[in-house]
């Protein structure tokens, strides 16, 4: 299950730079509970044949893992997608970085979150720095990181596409 639908994205109202403040928690996304089928669907989509993602016997008895694992590459695409949606329709998901700190396994439900740590205006665009993460239902942070999104100012210019970062 995901927390957004196509129609919600289609009708999403712009979040402006003026709307966010330091310390603010932005809307979260909940994904899951994850199942072996979700994990296998990802592996098949990107042709990742590493057995720890679909062969439970291999994962547990050969690799000593608790179960098959949700792919790090999947998490790598989920976080930019989450930030992309926060920025729609006119903002830009510029940067995101994270570390892989804990395993996600079938049965886990994941909450993607972002907290504003700083904001500034440059070249008429609103830059918002974030602390980000992906927590399990047990409050285990699996993927701590940071990001920068670029939001328009109310009454200000559109964010250019392709995105060109300001110099200096």
């Amino acid at each position: 299950m995901t927390t957004r639908t196509a129609d919600e994205l289609r009708n999403k109202q712009q979040m402006y730079y003026d709307d966010v403040s330091e310390g603010q928690m932005l809307p979260t996304y909940v994904l899951g509970p994850m199942t072996p089928t979700h994990v296998f669907r990802w592996s098949a989509a990107i042709e990742n044949w590493h057995r720890i993602h679909y062969d439970q016997d291999f994962s547990i008895y050969h690799e000593g893992l608790p179960n098959i694992l949700v792919n790090g590459s999947w998490k790598q695409s989920i976080m930019p997608g989450y930030l992309k949606d926060l920025c729609l329709p006119d903002g830009w998901m510029w940067k995101v970085s994270f570390q892989h700190r804990a395993m996600i396994v079938p049965g886990d439900t994941i909450t993607c979150w972002a907290k504003v740590t700083n904001k500034y205006v440059k070249d008429g665009m609103g830059f918002v720095e974030l602390e980000t993460g992906m927590k399990t239902q047990d409050d285990i942070e699996t993927c701590p990181g940071q990001g920068v999104i670029v939001l328009p100012l109310k009454g200000g210019r559109s964010i250019p596409y392709p995105f060109v970062p300001p110099q200096g």
């Binding site: 995901t2 289609r10 098949a44 990107i46 790598q76 695409s77 997608g81 998901m93």
Partner: peptide, 28 residues
């Protein structure tokens, strides 16, 4: 597989009217 229903990825009319002007693909 990334559970992203964004119409920018599949609805040609919607994508054409967006700032991107066409169907786009996910960030990475």
């Amino acid at each position: 597989a990334i559970m992203d229903p964004d119409p920018l990825y599949w609805d040609e009319d919607y994508a054409r009217a967006s700032k991107y002007g066409e169907i786009i693909t996910p960030p990475i």
